[in-house]
Every structure is written in structure tokens, then in C-alpha cells.
Amino acid sequence: MTMQNDAYNFAYLDEQTKRMIRRAILKGLAIPGYQVPFASREMPMPYGWGTGGVQVSAAVLTPEDTFKVIDQGADDTTNAVSIRTFFERTAGVATTTTTRNATVIQTRHRIPEEPLTEGQILVYQVPIPEPLRFLEPRESETRKMHSLEEYGLMHVKLYEDIARHGHIATSYAYPVKVEGRYVMDPSPIPKFDNPKLGNMAAIQLFGAGREQRIYALPPYTQVVSLDFEDHPFVASKADHPCGMCGAEDSYLDEVIIDDAGGRMFVCSDTDYCEGRQTAGHKGKDAA
């Protein structure tokens, strides 16, 4: 599957564009959690479909890398397939669905269940990189708020949730504070994944193409989900084991299986689930 199309430069982007993205990545690593503006290019796939992640992947891939793409935790969802094929074609890199064999993993909305290692890079596709955007729509204002470390608005919003609902009513894209300085949007991962963001051995890079921002978490960075002393952050998931592999510790998709509204719960991380099944673990719904 490594038919490379020679009509394009390695990994599609021209070298000048890659240099610009690489410089942004380095600044992102130097200022963890800060959104570096970059001159995102129009990619041959739509904005909102991973153009930021694709540009970051294109800038970090080497020909020897093994590339994995997941969307919602799964390797076989159509957009993951489409992005994987794009890099097979334009970079000729080897691809895999096995988390531990991948050196670069591009993801949308999940962090793999299996802990990542030092040799790996996790590239997130980010739709709205600005954690304050839905509280303040103006870029000029949110930029000021970050510069002044003025995050009161975010705490007020979270606290209003508690006052109204008794809980913080944010279940994904749950904001975090990085190294005690920048409030950061971790992309729309479920808050179940938030604890994996901090102290991770792999480098984490975030690309928002349409919004023209790149940001980063170096390995072993301190990342704290925003919360309150009396309402500590809780990473939640469906209170079931996986129907296929029986895992109790993985994030689950809810699948409707019949017209009567019957449902089962299965791992959203397909590689994790298959790995467990291969190792002999069986859930109650497994064949």
C-alpha cells in the first residue's frame, strides 16, 4: 500500500509551507498550551475535516514513519480511511491500525487507550482551538484574555453550571490549564480522556486549519482539568463493561442493536478492543 504519487512533493505540502508549520510547532512546544497563529493552507480536503491535523502530520512525518489515523477511536471510519489513504499516496509512509506500532498517530476526538510512548507523536485535529470562544466570540478579546491570564469568565461559566445543574455541564472539549499558565482546548475528546493529556510520554501536537492555529504539549507536561475544590473534575464514561472485550477501563460507544431500543456498549478504541479480544478477553455480547 505504499504507492507514492510522484506528482506531489513528499507529504503533499511544498517545503516552504512545511518550514512555516515547523516553525509554528517549535514555538508551540516552547510555550505549551499557547495557540501559535500559522498561515494554514487550503488542503485538498474540506476545512473542518482535519486540515489542521493533516498539515501538522505532513510537517512532522518522515519517510520511515508508521502512520495511524483514528476518528472517534476507530481506524475504519470513513474520514480516517480518507486521511490515511492521502498520506499513503503522498508520503508513501507505512500505515498501521496497531497503536503501539505507530510512530505518528493522527486523531479526531480520542486519545488511544493504550499509553503512548516516547517514540510517538499524537496529532490532534482541532475544530475550535480557542477554549474561550463560546464565552467571547471575538478573537481580539480572547487574545487579550490569554495575554492577561484573565480566565475568570471560564470559571464563572463552569460555576454557573454547578449552580444550575449541580455538575459542570461540559462533557467533551473540557478545558485544561497547562503548566499553570494557558487555558487550552484539548479538542473535542471526551473528558474521560483528559487525564491522559498530562504527563504523557509522547509529544502532543494540535492543528486547527480553518482557525489557523497550532499548539503543543511537550512530553511530561502538567495539564490540569479546570475544576473547583468542592466540585473536583471527574473523568466519566458509560457505566458498563465493553460488550465485546469486557474492558472496564475503556471509553465506550453506545450502539443501538434492534428496533426495540436494545443497546450495547463497545470500546470506541477499535484497536484496543481487538487486541483484548485476540488476547482472549470476552464481553457478554461477544460471539
Partner: peptide, 19 residues
Amino acid sequence: DPARQSAHAFRSVREALGR
């Protein structure tokens, strides 16, 4: 071979700055 060599060189710089 600019595309491939700069990809490797960037990997080194990025690893150095990231670690």
C-alpha cells in the same frame, strides 16, 4: 533531497526542543 532530509532534520530539532 530537501523534502526527506529536512523531515529528518526537523525530527531532530523537534525532539531536542520537545525534550
